[in-house]
Design a protein around this nucleic acid. Sequence first.
DNA 1: TTCTAGCGTATTGTCAACAATCGTGAGTCT
DNA 2: AGACTCACGATTGTTGACAATACGCTAGAA
Lengths: 224, 224
Amino acid sequence: MSSVAHISSTTLADNLREKLISAIIDGEIPQGEKISEMELASRYGVSRGPLREAIRDLEGLRLVRRRPHAGVRVVSLHCAELREIFTIREALEGMAARLASEKMSDEDIHSLGELLRLHETEVRNSDGELYFRQQGDLDFHLRILRGSGNQHLYELMGEDLYQLIMMYRRQSSQCLARVTRALDEHKRIFDAIRSRDGELAEILMRRHIQGASLALRRCIEENP
Amino acid sequence: MSSVAHISSTTLADNLREKLISAIIDGEIPQGEKISEMELASRYGVSRGPLREAIRDLEGLRLVRRRPHAGVRVVSLHCAELREIFTIREALEGMAARLASEKMSDEDIHSLGELLRLHETEVRNSDGELYFRQQGDLDFHLRILRGSGNQHLYELMGEDLYQLIMMYRRQSSQCLARVTRALDEHKRIFDAIRSRDGELAEILMRRHIQGASLALRRCIEENP
DNA sequence: TTCTAGCGTATTGTCAACAATCGTGAGTCT
DNA sequence: AGACTCACGATTGTTGACAATACGCTAGAA
């Protein structure tokens, strides 16, 4: 089944794709850097064929920009671009919250509540842990995305676009202090979903993401 | 056999990508069909390398599904999937209408009004032309997408996802009769944008797309 | 007859060499 | 000195051959 050891069970290009995503997200390959096919190929011990296919995927995820015959560079997320992404996120996750209010099963909603309680205790205990926040926050949003029952929506926002957000989060580690407030907003969104109030859930989710976007921009202005 | 006179200004893979998109959209390669790399490569007179890269792109556009070592099939748009796409479209284009209300220049708005007047006369004259409708409708929506000033939003919805919608439209030619009503709804959206009323523009756009989605589903139920 | 096992073929995945294109720096002319 | 030309080097794009995997077919037994 889907357990371990799918290290090389797929194809080289697919594996490379994941490795490259991680490398870019972690900043191992810096933003704006031009990447050399030959160098990367030898670094990962594969030929240029699979590598080029993986790069093609990354281009689709908008993690790299490619100019024909001139090489490919890792994108650099400046403020305007990040704002664009968050606007898209607002539209998509707002819709997801609305759909989740209608479509989620009672069990899934219950499970989501448990997750929130878990987050609360974790926030209370280790009050400065931001790694948790990244994972936990993501987890909440991903659950709602999945709870929408819209497979395309989940793939588009939760698998593709989230990579871009992850890339920013990993590399700009500051900008927390919003943890407790975010958790509070999560709880209100959850309440709306539990009440099957799709319209409210959408509004709250959109506000929540607007707030995150605003906080992010403020943080960028302060810390160069 | 083939006129190879076209010296590709970009790359073979990029050209192939566009050709394959057209072929799939036009139904030249039928939905659900498993595509053979060798056959396609010889058909388009290229090697399998660039072809595989182009296919990788199509997978990102969700026009094909690929299973490792088992080949790649053109997606088949059944009703549920189409509904998912339209839901995403509703969220994204609704947001685009809101943003366009704030960001579009007066000249762009004026130009958009001219486009609508052009559409009106065309609809009045050639009342059954659906090819116009496809192009014209798309044009209106694309203008708003671009008017949002959000580059990522435009690329995501107007360049990537629209391929899927185009694919459906081309292949199920029926399902018009909504032309005049759609035009009317376009006009109201335009009015909201001209009034710089982003909230109203978003609501109207979402209703408009909901209506289109509903009409589509009804049409599918009637015509198998 | 139907299920299963095993083999052979056809297709996909990978590689390393070949060709085309772009960026660069030396050299020259005004 | 500054700008333009042109050829060189390095990198990307493309190809056909090679290896690995999945699918179908035949054959045999229950």
